[in-house]
């Protein structure tokens, strides 16, 4: 324990481990993202315990039944559950929010469109999709969430 090592005198062996991955979005994820490309937001539903899952899953983590039912998520059900402000190495400071939807288990992490008004917890928002021609079937097809006044 007393053997203090000098951090400045440590020699190093440099290496680089090149690894690349092609992930699948899965059965539920693939369908969800294809729907998103069409501008639709759907959740999968557990017919046993009536939970709606977003992002959708093919199983209920609680009762463990298979989920085959899908339902539209009401656009006016979205609200900011928590938010933060982040600064990446490049680019301006951004607002990031965990957006939840009334009556839905789960939520989506996304950018929050900044406005002069400070965001607040519980603020109603709606997803804004990219132009149809620019969508790629990825979560980024939702460009950002913006505040709405219902």
């Amino acid at each position: 324990m007393e053997k203090i090592t000098s951090e400045t005198k440590i020699g190093v062996v440099k290496d680089h481990i090149p690894l690349k991955y092609n992930y699948t979005a899965g059965v539920a994820g693939d369908r969800f993202l294809q729907l998103l490309k069409q501008g639709k937001l759907q959740a999968s539903q557990c017919t046993q315990c009536h939970k709606l899952y977003l992002p959708p899953k093919i199983f209920c983590k609680d009762c463990f039944s298979q989920l085959n039912e899908w339902k539209d998520v009401a656009e006016d059900s979205a609200y900011v559950y928590s938010f933060t402000s982040v600064k990446k190495e490049e680019g301006p400071r951004e607002l990031i929010a965990l957006v939840k939807f009334d009556g839905v288990e789960g939520g989506l992490l996304g950018r929050l469109k900044s406005s002069r008004e400070e965001p607040r917890m519980g603020m109603k928002v709606r997803p804004v999709f990219k132009q149809k021609s620019e969508r790629t079937g990825e979560l980024s097809d939702i460009e950002y969430f913006e505040k709405v006044n219902y």
């Binding site: 992930y23 979005a25 899965g26 994820g29 993202l33 992002p55 933060t84 982040v86 990446k88 990031i96 989506l108 992490l109 996304g110 950018r111 990825e138 979560l139 980024s140």
Partner: peptide, 12 residues
């Protein structure tokens, strides 16, 4: 699929 695209970090 849902988190890495944004550049999500643990701190977030």
């Amino acid at each position: 699929d849902y988190e890495r695209q944004l550049g999500t970090t643990l701190l977030w």
